[in-house]
Design a protein around this nucleic acid. Structure first.
Lengths: 248, 248
DNA sequence: TACATACCGGGTACCGTGTACGCAATAGCG
DNA sequence: CGCTATTGCGTACACGGTACCCGGTATGTA
């Protein structure tokens, strides 16, 4: 009741008692290893404990429950978003674009990440550093921190939303256990049954039109991202270069 | 093995045998009722069967598993996206904006919807009709269906991503069982512990700056949506007004 | 050095979950 | 009037998260 209701405020290593046999970071890494290899739903407390060579209930000395395992996973990979200490480009749009692509790369590498991150508030220190970095790119343009947050939030919303939709199909395919060809064939016969009702003229045009000039996922991602950044740039207060103070 | 691997291709009522005691729609409505009242995780096959006054295993005569229950839920509420047969505005951007706000309204009314919809391919007939409507708004502007899909996909990605982040905090609050004041107090003390490390200058400025001019969720949503639509409009081929032929 | 205290590891147990299987009842077809 | 496909559903199982408890261990105090 004194405090520490939050994972991130709870000290990892208490003052008294025996040393823990592993660390939070090790726990997170083990969970990430499992999720990368076998998917999110493969993570169970028993499985995770086995991966760590520990008893199941020992995990509860490190986290209060499975949810905090997820919190740890998300915040750990959030560290990967930021490449290295490369100085950010001085163009804010270029900086955000870079960040967005970095986020996409990370989320494709860890397909469980996007749904998980979308469903919980970003509270960990690495997530906070990420936000810091993004806000830093917008500093000195006369925006209030609140306006910067709105702006960055819009970009992150697009990125997360896009990648989830990108992953959804791949995930469905994986869970169905079918080959891509089988699934396409299935989908096609369904599509044709829809078209047969006459209520889906666009869908019909889609099957007739474009031979196979289907836009690649990369290009679709880039399209929306660039449009969004364009729109933001157009609405931003005029550059004001490096004026003494542009707030107001 | 002959076919019907897909929920939407499987006929609801087979030719032979006794009449089912309820319908897919009733099943979906019952599930939606539970999820609206008690959250997604309150849905179990037993609970759902009880709501329908049926035996647990009877549900498996209607769906192949719990996943298909979710599919039904998503596609059912997808019907709510479209208001009524109001003729769409002739400005495509206005049409998409309206659709986006309608989507947000629906997703806030059914807080379980956004995460669920984001995680699975939109395959149902109602989802397809929604896509049809969106594509129809872009018709006659010289775009290929593929380009239209890219465009609409970007808007939907933003909408879904934004609303998920909007809901994440509320959901976390709900699950913690705390009052808003308690949670804010907790969060504040955590934030201050972060600031104390000196690594979060922007976070620090945020606590000092804006008295309470915190942007409302509605305005933040509008900001990103409008910027995105602006950016798209700017990149679209010139209007071409009402050329001689606009249909396909 | 001896003891108290706070913490660690983890076994056992409980309840809730999704769903495979099997069987009796039923409705449409021949 | 059977025949058969199909429905409703009880039972059973494997697996999930985690509450509880106990024996061991490292730190602090006397």
């Amino acid at each position: 009741m004194t405090g520490h209701e939050n994972l991130w405020m709870r000290p990892e290593r208490p003052a008294r008692g025996p040393r823990p046999s592993f660390s939070r970071a090790a726990l997170a890494q083990a969970a990430i290893r499992i999720a990368d290899a076998e998917g999110l739903e493969a993570i169970s407390m028993r499985r995770l404990a086995a991966e760590l060579g520990a008893g199941t209930m020992s995990l509860y000395r490190y986290v209060t429950g499975k949810d905090e395992v997820f919190d740890l996973m998300v915040d750990t990979v959030a560290g990967e978003y930021l490449p290295e200490d490369r100085p950010p480009p001085d163009d804010w749009a270029e900086g955000l674009r870079l960040l967005a692509w970095q986020a996409r790369r990370t989320m494709l590498r860890h397909p469980w990440l996007a749904p998980l991150a979308a469903g919980r508030p970003q509270a960990g220190p690495n997530s906070a550093r990420l936000t810091e970095t993004a806000l830093g790119m917008l500093d000195g343009r006369g925006l209030s921190v609140d306006e910067m947050l709105t702006l960055v939030g819009a970009v992150f919303a697009y990125v997360n939303g896009y990648i989830q939709s990108e992953l959804a199909e791949a995930e469905a395919l994986r869970r169905s256990g079918l080959t891509l060809a089988q699934r396409l064939a299935q989908h096609l016969s369904y599509i044709q049954s829809l078209i047969a009702t006459g209520n889906y003229p666009m869908l019909e045009r889609m099957t007739k039109e474009g031979g196979r000039q289907y836009t690649a996922a990369d290009d679709r991602f880039a399209y929306g991202l660039d449009r969004l950044l364009d729109g933001i740039a157009a609405a931003l207060p005029p550059a004001a270069a490096e004026g003494p103070e542009s707030t107001g």
